[in-house]
Design a binder for these strands. Sequence first.
DNA 1: TATGAATGAGGTTTCATTCAT
DNA 2: AATGAATGAAACCTCATTCAT
Lengths: 225, 225, 225, 225
Amino acid sequence: MPNAGKSAIKTTVEDSALVERRRAQLTRAAIACFSERGYHPTTIRDVAERADVSIGLIYQYVGDKEDLLFMALQEVLDTYKRQIPLALDGIADPLQRFWVAVQAYARVNGSTVDATVLAYRETKSLRKDRRNAIMQMERDTNELIAACVRDCIDAKLFEAIDVDMFVYQIVMFCHAWALKAWHFAKTMDVDTYVERGLRLMLRGVLTRAGTKRMASLEAGGRPSG
Amino acid sequence: MPNAGKSAIKTTVEDSALVERRRAQLTRAAIACFSERGYHPTTIRDVAERADVSIGLIYQYVGDKEDLLFMALQEVLDTYKRQIPLALDGIADPLQRFWVAVQAYARVNGSTVDATVLAYRETKSLRKDRRNAIMQMERDTNELIAACVRDCIDAKLFEAIDVDMFVYQIVMFCHAWALKAWHFAKTMDVDTYVERGLRLMLRGVLTRAGTKRMASLEAGGRPSG
Amino acid sequence: MPNAGKSAIKTTVEDSALVERRRAQLTRAAIACFSERGYHPTTIRDVAERADVSIGLIYQYVGDKEDLLFMALQEVLDTYKRQIPLALDGIADPLQRFWVAVQAYARVNGSTVDATVLAYRETKSLRKDRRNAIMQMERDTNELIAACVRDCIDAKLFEAIDVDMFVYQIVMFCHAWALKAWHFAKTMDVDTYVERGLRLMLRGVLTRAGTKRMASLEAGGRPSG
Amino acid sequence: MPNAGKSAIKTTVEDSALVERRRAQLTRAAIACFSERGYHPTTIRDVAERADVSIGLIYQYVGDKEDLLFMALQEVLDTYKRQIPLALDGIADPLQRFWVAVQAYARVNGSTVDATVLAYRETKSLRKDRRNAIMQMERDTNELIAACVRDCIDAKLFEAIDVDMFVYQIVMFCHAWALKAWHFAKTMDVDTYVERGLRLMLRGVLTRAGTKRMASLEAGGRPSG
DNA sequence: TATGAATGAGGTTTCATTCAT
DNA sequence: AATGAATGAAACCTCATTCAT
């Protein structure tokens, strides 16, 4: 069940299916606009035009402009929470699960570079309670990866490393693709980025067993793009 | 020489020492305001009050509000460029130089968390040419660290790793301290953060010689606070 | 025949009994809303919710928002025109008729303080022709009292006073109960107010015969609450 | 010292003489606009144009639109508090003082009919605390007249009547000139109105001594326009 | 050089009214 | 006949910028 925080936002419309649909429409438009120009410079009129609705309509589904930002950020964070489990589905090997999870994370990043940057830029523009809600969603996502790391350690594929720190390094590494797109995007694609990056990060993390397993996975073909 | 971009910004004042002094004053105020509330929500009046000058005065040293942002971001980026060489001064051992450089970088971060976040949030609010100038400053700083890495490789203390990727991982790791302060700052201080983080990142990077050298450095006492 | 101004208001509904019923329902809601918050701050939605109908329905019985105000004010003024004759029914003595008429007037006031204030506040919000219609209704009501006064003069119970002025003083006195409710309502009820006020106003108006008649009425018991 | 309540209103302008002057200018414009069309239908632009200033300027001397209303109502009420003492200056005879006070009250009314109506219509549009402040000002003014009444009673010129009630009847009588201008203004001027009205109201209030004094005053010429 | 009052374009938000269902 | 989602004009208010002193 995505969108746990849908609760708070005001609407004057009663048909809840319609509310769902319109909100999705507005969220899409908001992400596009905010990503392009930033939250503050974007006007409600911009969002209305992008969503191809009237200005008035927006205020039937949303209390104020900040709600649009909240919806946008929720959607961005939610995408991770949806995509990672999806990518993991059916995969059993811990090392492969780890790799696939990171790859999924980075791919979401890669496909929505602007949205990721948006999350970095504008989370602070939210009221405190909403900022906390967004941060909790981020923690939830990180936990998906942390679980994979712990499984690798339990399976003796990873050394007994500092999990929290390692997860954050991985997450930051993924975000870096978006945040420093102007540096990386010119020279490689996301999958190459993940490949090169993980290879570097795993050097000191894989056990001997882990290294072997990795080799066999590569022989069998790691899931690529 | 700080303020490489001195060129562009308009002023009606002729005494260039005065311009220098006022600009520094305004930059300080701007960094404080923008860090606190963000660029767009901050008003010129806010900056004027923080700098304890009149609104009119600002426009004698600055063409428009964006100039203040540019000056602020320049100053933030400049701090790295000043602090890292300062910290390296007098140190010869490549491994120690590397460590000290990263530490200096992270410490600047730690002492100006808000300013670092500011750079992430608001660089996009600049006009293209200025955005490029800021990004170039970031590349220059990264190069300071890259040089240390290459020296370590040349000295056979580091394996022949992917330098560019490694530097970015380190830089992102440092920034993470500011960007994810809400996660880390509760549980440790910057130096501990650097310690734990680098230890993890260096696991697969140090050569056998590098590992030994590291041990001896630790015995002799790594530079602390 | 209430609703003399039935003419003007637009409707798309043909069943005239239904129109009557719905209009009454809307008028009640409008009086309540407008009294509470004033005409302009009240929204059509407010009225719709109070009347427990949809917004769209309102526009099937009413041309625009101003119609609601007109209906509301008509209803308020109409109440006087209905209540005074009702109270006078069966009473023959001129002095008692006068007293009862004033009392009835004041009681309507007392029971609908907000509505009376509404009439004072918002009559000006009407278009000229409607404003005139409302003022005519007020004159009609005043005439009901003026007739009582003239009867008292003809019966030598009142001196030959300035009738017009006297009627206005009485009417204003009654309205004052509503307009200055914050002053009077704390210390007495309407009937006491009328009692104290009329006693004062009649001091110089009653003839010797009038004074005697008053005394005998009081002995026999004036109609109270 | 008029305008005890000037305190609360926000301004960004420091020169307090200028604030005083601008506020007076805005208040004049506000009274004119609000009287003409009512508070809600009047736009800030209307006031700005009437005062011949920019919209922005208004918000340097006033926090919001409601402040304009408050200032306007204060000014209206203040006029009474200034004019009555002015008219009483130098007059000693209690009966004449009473007459002159009522006359002054009614004249203010007469010269600012719209403003008086404004006070009736729009006091409710104020926030509670300000509404109270305005009502207190009204009570203060009433007290000026009440004092005259009490002096007349003490001097045995008035019977020992219900002072509070009498004062309210007089005040309402004066207001009626404005509130029912459409009725009275056609047939007489204010002074005639006061003359006819007071003559009626005083019939039962004057003592025998009071009646004599009144006659002698009239012989000597009551203060007219 | 320094000040701060003045300007007005433009942003967010509301709400009377319409109209397809 | 009844509903309520959709519209968009127009209101309030902010704030970057100017300019007379």
